[in-house]
Simulated assay, not measured.
Amino acid sequence: MTSIDRQRVSVLLGTEDLAVEDRPVPAVDPGDVLVRVAAVGVCGSDVHYYRHGRIGDFVVEEPLVLGHELSGTIEAVGDGVDPARVGERVAVEPQRPCHRCAQCLAGRYNLCPHMRFYATPPIDGAFAEFVTIESEFAHTLPDAVSFEAGALLEPLSVGIAAVRKAGIVPGSSVLIAGAGPIGIICAQAARAFGASHIVVSDLVPERRERALSFGATETVDPTVVSVASDLPPFDAFIDASGAPRAVADGIRAVGPAGAAVLVGLGNSEMTLPVEHIQNLEVTVTGIFRYTGTWSVAIELVASGQVDLDSLVTGRFGLDEVRDALESDTDPESLKSVVYPGGIPAGGAHLQSGT
C-alpha cells in the first residue's frame, strides 16, 4: 500500500459550488489497483452536473467528485493482482459493472443495471489525486501514448462505440452533427474505420474549420445547406449535438438501410421522421457508454490513426477546476484537462512513458 494516506479532492457541493477537500486515500480492495491520477479530461456531463445538478434521472443529492476521463500510474495493488503492475502507466475505464447480471453475461456490461460509473451520482469521480478501479479496467498505456491522450481514450471509446453502431466500413459515407469534442472524435474514429466521405455539420464557422483538421472531408453550415435534400444520401448519421432539428434532419439524410446513431445529450423526447425511418428501413439507435473499446482506442492512438493530444486546448490544476468547467464558454476551447497532482513543467502533453 502507498505510504500516502491523505489526498486533495475537488468536490461539487452544489450547483456551481466547488471546494477542494482533504480526504483519505481510498483503500485498495482485492482485485483492484490504486491509481495516482495524472490527467483528467473535462466532459460535457461534468459541466452539466456543475451547472444544473442533474442529467436526466441522475441527480446530485450529496457532495460529488466529478471527472471520469483519466489516466495515471498504478501506485499499489490489491490481493490477487500482480505486484509487478505497480509503476505501470494506465488509462482507466471508469466503470464497475457487477459481472453477474444478464447484460454483463451477454457481453453488454455498459448496460449493467448495477453499474457504478465514475462521477455519476452517487459515485465519486477522478478530480482527485488517487482513485481505485478493478485491475482489468486499468489498461496499460504504451510509451507512445501520453497521459493526456490516455485520459481522452474515454471519449474516443464513445466515438468507437458510435461508429461501430453506425456500421462504418471502408468506403462508408457518414454525416456527423456537431463539431464539439465528441463530434471531432467521431470524425477521427470514422476515418480510422475507413469512411471515405465524412461530412461534419455545425453552426459555428471556427468549429467547422477545425473539423477539417480532424478527419472531416467536408463541412456544412446547416442554416445554409439542407443535409436532408441538398446532399446525396449517407450510409450513416451520427448526432453529437443533441439538437432536435439536427437529429431529425440527420435521420432524413440517411439512405436506404442506413443507420442513425444518437450520441449527443439532448431533449428527453423528440419528434422523429417516422415515415422516412419506416420506408427506408433506417436503423435508429443510441449508445450508452461503451463495451470492449479500450484496446482498439489504444491502438488507434499509438499507431497515429487518431490524434488526441492536439484536442487539448486548456490545462488546469486541482484548484482551477472551476475554470476548467467554465472553459467551454470560450469558442476557442475544445478539450480541457485537469492535473490533480499539478501541471507538469515543460508541456503537459509531452508527459509520456519515455
Rank of each mutant, 00 (worst) to 15 (best):
20 V>Q: 07
135 S>H: 13
313 T>H: 06
37 V>I: 15
26 P>S: 11
299 E>V: 05
233 P>E: 12
225 V>E: 07
247 V>Q: 07
97 P>H: 02
162 A>R: 02
37 V>Y: 03
200 V>M: 10
105 L>H: 13
324 A>L: 09
67 G>D: 03
177 A>C: 08
27 A>E: 15
257 A>M: 12
236 A>I: 01
41 G>R: 02
203 L>E: 01
300 L>Y: 00
172 S>V: 10
40 V>F: 07
175 L>F: 10
24 P>D: 14
323 D>M: 10
71 S>N: 10
144 A>D: 14
275 E>F: 13
9 V>T: 15
249 D>P: 07
225 V>R: 10
211 A>V: 05
9 V>Q: 10
315 R>K: 11
28 V>N: 06
145 V>H: 00
216 A>Q: 01
167 G>K: 04
184 I>A: 07
58 F>N: 08
61 E>D: 15
331 P>C: 11
63 P>M: 06
61 E>P: 00
39 A>D: 08
126 A>G: 13
84 A>D: 15
278 Q>F: 14
150 G>A: 11
110 N>C: 04
275 E>C: 03
119 A>M: 10
40 V>A: 07
24 P>Q: 12
210 R>I: 06
257 A>L: 14
346 G>V: 12
302 A>V: 08
245 R>L: 12
188 Q>R: 08
118 Y>K: 07
35 V>P: 00
340 P>I: 06
102 A>S: 13
84 A>K: 12
168 I>A: 02
78 G>Y: 09
217 T>C: 10
114 H>G: 00
43 C>H: 09
45 S>E: 02
222 P>C: 09
163 V>R: 02
308 L>N: 05
119 A>K: 03
231 L>Q: 08
142 P>K: 07
68 H>E: 02
326 E>G: 04
258 G>K: 02
50 Y>W: 11
56 G>R: 09
263 V>M: 01
36 R>A: 14
163 V>N: 01
291 T>K: 05
297 A>S: 14
223 T>A: 11
30 P>Q: 11
340 P>Q: 07
195 A>F: 06
